[in-house]
Amino acid sequence: MNVTLNMGIGIVPIITNALAYAGIAYFAYKQYQKQALKPSVWKMIIVMLVGLFSFSFDWSMSNTMLRFAILPLGVWLIFLVCRGNKHRWQKYRSFAWLGFGANYLLLAATLLSIPLQNVLYPTDKLSTHIAKVNNASIIRLHPSAEEVSLNVESLKEQLSSMQEAQLKSDELYVKIVLESDQNNRQEQFPYLLIGTDSKWGSGLSTVIYVEMDGKGIITSTHDKQLYYRFEKSLLQEGISDG
């Protein structure tokens, strides 16, 4: 449980979705006030929930799923249920359509969350990916890794001064694979940095690899990697027990 809490869900989509729901509630309230024929409130809520149901298509844009509702299946369903009773249909029609319209309010919320996320949590800033390092440690991922542990102080000290550098992944790959045969191969990034927290509310879970000499890291989200170099090594001799 403690593992799943801090991953995935960021604060931005929570806020934009809350806005969308507030908007839906507001429109429902307005419509209720306006209408002469008042429906019962709990039936109104059910009608809106059913109205939400639609045939839609999903379109993924820069790792965000956008859902476009096309056919108002829920509205049709309510129409069928109300068939033969004109009064009833009159009473609930607007709420059924409001339910369908809610799809687009939620879509707007998603669209709003993208630029907001980029402004609050720019993924090209190291401080977004590494905000807290107190519980950080390293895992040796490859047999060529040395018997070393993380120097947390060195990491803390240098966080603000790490310089972005260029990593040519194709050249690195070819170099490693051609330079030695399978059984003697070294890994350029043989350590995994764990226990760091990304910036609060970002919802980012960044994988961080540490370079062989301890003076470089790769921050890696599912769609983007950044490479940083710095002066002093993050690694120190000996394996810590912690």
């Binding site: 490859h142 990593l167 194709d170 490693i176 990034f189 043989p190 790769i218 983007k224 990697q225």
Partner: peptide, 11 residues
């Protein structure tokens, strides 16, 4: 945009 996957081999 470069993306590098280090080799992982734990024994």
């Amino acid at each position: 945009e470069h993306y590098y996957y280090p080799k992982i081999q734990l024994d």
